[in-house]
Each structure stands twice: as C-alpha cells, then as structure tokens.
C-alpha cells in the first residue's frame, strides 16, 4: 500500500523535490520566527527592560529582508514550474483511455466498447487519460502518480503519466459533485505489459450495445443517479420491475395503493411530489416537465413495459 512519498509515476520525483524544498524553507523560517518571538518575550520583558529603544526603521535591514524572500520564492516558483510543465506535454505514443466521470462513479473506456470499472495500466508505458463528464464537475486524482485534473462537462481536459511502480493505487474524485462525492472512488492497477495486454484482450465488450430509446432518454437525464436498475435503493425507488408493480404512495390526502402503469410513471416524472412512494422523501426530485417532451415520456413508458415483458 502507499506511503506518504511512494513515487508511483515518472512525474512524482520532480513534484516531491518541489515539496521538499518549500517545506524545508518553511520549516526553517517558522522555527526561526517562533524562536525569535520567544527570545524577545523573555529578553525584553517589561520586568527586565524598563527602557524601550525607540528605533523605527533600518533601511539596510529592510532591503535585505525584501530581496532575500523575493529570491527564495522565485526558486520555489521555479521548482513548482519544473515539476508541472511535463504534465502538459503528452508523449505522442501515450496509450489513450477515456475516463467517464458521472455522479457517482468512474468508468474507464479502452475503446471498441471495452469498459472497465478499474483503471488497469501497463507498467512503464505512457498513458493519457481523456476526461469526460456526463453531468457536473468532477476531478480525477491519483495521489501516488501525483496527477489531478478536473473533469468538466463540455471540456476536453486530459492528464498523462507513466507508472513506475506496480501495484494498486487509490483514485479519488476531488471536485465536490453532490451526495455521494466521497463514494466516487476507484483503483488504478499497474501490471506489466504482457499481463496488461492479456487483460485488455479478455475485457468484455459491454459498451456500444444500443439502448432502447426510452433508456437513452433516462440516461441522458441522469435519472440513474437516484434510481437504480438492479433493485438497490439509492435516493428514489429502483426501476427494476417497475412496470405493473403494486406499491403504496403518499398523497396530500393520505396513503393509497397503486399499480405503476404508464400514467403513474409519466405523472412521477412531471409532478414527482404528487404521489411519493412510501418510504421515500418528498422534495428531492425536480420536475422534468420542461425537459422531457410528451413523445419522450411515451418512449420511457415503453421502455419500462418492454423491460418488464423481457422477464
């Protein structure tokens, strides 16, 4: 597992050198300033020193303590820049992987419909990550590799690295993106090239199967953020087995049992606070009245109907 200064990528060394320089200077100055303060409090205490000196400037000293800090921070800037500049110069032979960030999980697209939940990468080879968001701002952070870039909808942001350590490393989302921001983690797995090629060849094609039009609309509106497909409870009721399901809803005039038919499904999309399924909270889901047309509502209902019949 990672320790504080595991250098997981080719970029880490220069980053860590910048850290060490800045921390060392900071530590020395902080200790020095603190020691001087304590010395002043003791040596010049009112008990010991009843006659304060009245000097109020010293040009030579002031020039020194202006020029030296300027030089020091310029060196810090330099180390910071040296460590950073290579991060934006992607080698031409870097293997591209598309990272899809959505509320609240990462998916890694290796092309040709091959999608993975883990970022498996080959040891000592250049990798470029193309960052795509399907909803809000996210940020991909791999501490061991010293890389982080935001994943902004509408932007073609990227990062690259060459792993120099084999192992498993944490990936975090580092741009607050809502309820389960802290659950949006993944793993980067570094294996040698042969093992990587085998893994990639064996990776099942799960992308690119065209969705039912209704399902495409559901995905486009981020409904799956709160409604699972597999029966698990997220924020709202699961879509699994929805069509024809008998369920109890809470209305303004009390509870009643309904069967989830086309009308109920459409009403739940346009007026979600009207009939809320018992056990779920009102006021969490916005209305999609302006966003989903009547035609699209029909497609959604048809999707649920056919999904139910497919069982």
């Amino acid at each position: 597992m990672e320790t504080l200064f595991n250098e997981g990528s080719n970029l880490a060394g220069a980053v860590d050198r910048a850290f060490i320089f800045i921390f060392a200077v900071s530590f020395i100055f902080t200790i020095g300033i603190t020691a001087l303060m304590i010395y002043i409090l003791i040596h010049f205490s009112r008990k010991r020193n009843k006659n304060p000196q009245q000097f109020s400037h010293n040009t030579k000293l002031e020039v020194v303590w202006t020029v030296i800090p300027i030089l020091i921070v310029l060196v810090m800037f330099y180390y910071g820049w040296v460590g950073f500049a290579p991060m934006r110069q992607v080698p031409k032979d870097a293997m591209p992987v598309t990272v899809i960030g959505k509320m609240w999980s990462w998916e890694f697209d290796y092309g040709n419909g091959k999608l993975s939940k883990e970022l498996v990468v080959p040891y000592n080879k250049n990798v470029k990550l193309n960052l795509v968001s399907v909803d809000v701002n996210h940020s991909l952070f791999i501490p061991a590799f010293r890389v982080k870039e935001d994943v902004i909808p509408g932007y073609k942001n990227y990062l690259w690295f060459r792993p120099i350590m084999k192992g498993t490393f944490d990936i975090y989302c580092t741009e607050y993106c809502g309820l389960a921001h802290s659950a949006m983690t993944a793993k980067a797995v570094v294996v040698d090239s042969l093992e990587f090629n085998k893994w990639l060849a064996d990776l099942k094609v799960t992308g690119n199967v065209p969705d039912h039009p209704g399902l495409a609309i559901i995905k486009a509106n981020a409904c799956l953020t709160c409604h699972s497909m597999d029966g698990s409870k997220i924020i709202g009721p699961s879509f699994k087995g929805l069509f024809g399901r008998k369920t109890v809803v809470v209305t303004d005039s009390g509870e009643k049992e309904i069967e989830a038919n086309g009308d109920y499904i459409k009403k739940s999309i346009i007026d979600p606070n009207a009939d809320v399924v018992k056990g779920f909270n009102k006021g969490l889901m916005q209305s999609y009245k302006e966003k989903i047309s009547a035609e699209d509502l029909d497609k959604i209902v048809d999707y649920f109907k056919t999904a139910g019949e497919a069982k």
Binding site: A14, V15, A18, F19, I22, F23, V25, S26, F29, T30, V73, M76, F77, Y79, G80, W81, V82, G83, F84, M87, S139, F141, P143, R146, V147, K148, T174, E175, Y176
Partner: peptide
Amino acid sequence: GFTGLTLGSLATNIQLHNT
C-alpha cells in the same frame, strides 16, 4: 502563509488541490 506557498507552486498544487 507558508502552506499557501505549497499551494501557489504548480507542481505541489496539483497534488494538494481540494484535499
């Protein structure tokens, strides 16, 4: 202030931003 310098420096900021 000194920890601000680590955040102002590019290479170290990439690591520390939003942590």
